[in-house]
Design a protein around this nucleic acid. Structure first.
Length: 199
DNA sequence: GTAGTGATTTTCT
DNA sequence: GAAAATCACTACA
């Protein structure tokens, strides 16, 4: 306990900012999820921003739909969608209420609750299995549509600020999209080995 | 080691 | 009916 070790839950005001300000700030923060079986904590190392304007890759680019409705709501909530018939992706809603914007969580390092994670092939080789990818991450956490539109200032799913400053932030184009690739809105911690590997 | 493709279902046109 | 903010497996060098 040398320095300040105050751990604070990120307030709604943290999310109520432009997406491109929130996204890099998320690196080095900790994601806490209280599952039915216990508590999981992971350090965020890779995210992508999806903006309300000038972003054809954003789900909200074509207006409000049933799926992207949480993005149009108030900030500080979760937005989870199902894709490719088998994977879920977790986002944090940003911007003001009524303005669609979100940050996709792409990769994290588990620091607590590793034994609670769900892995492919029935849970073999759980050691050192990286949460490198949005689909993997949600599967490991057991996230599904049941956790969609949760309040991130609540107790079930939230982020902690542990005041880490040893994050080397880099940015690059986003991954897995076909339009809007020219926007470098992916942010990651260059010190982490859990970030998505380039193809 | 890299490259290519099947899986599988929700959502929107 | 087609596409989707992905992953893991298979084939081949």
């Amino acid at each position: 306990m040398s320095k300040r070790e105050t751990i604070t839950k990120l307030p709604q005001a943290f999310y109520a900012r432009p997406t491109l300000e929130v996204a890099p700030d998320l690196l080095g923060k900790y994601l806490i999820y209280k599952a039915a079986t216990g508590r999981i904590a992971a350090r965020i190392v890779e995210v992508e921003g999806y903006l309300p304007v000038d972003d054809p890759a954003c789900h909200a680019a074509r207006g409000l739909t049933r799926r992207n409705r949480p993005m149009f709501g108030p900030p500080g909530r979760s937005y989870i969608y199902f894709i490719y018939g088998m994977y879920h992706c977790l986002n944090f809603v940003t911007e003001q209420d009524g303005t669609p914007g979100a940050v996709l969580l792409r990769a994290a390092e588990v620091v607590a609750g590793r034994e609670l994670l769900v892995f492919p092939r029935g849970g073999k080789r759980t050691d050192r299995y990286p949460l490198s990818g949005p689909g993997k991450l949600c599967r490991a956490f057991g996230l599904s549509m049941d956790q969609n539109d949760l309040d991130l200032t609540g107790d079930r799913l939230y982020l902690e600020d542990r005041h880490e400053n040893d994050v080397t932030i880099k940015q690059s184009p986003r991954i897995g999209i076909k339009v809007g690739v020219d926007h470098p809105w992916r942010f990651y911690d260059a010190n982490s080995s859990a970030v998505t590997r380039p193809r």
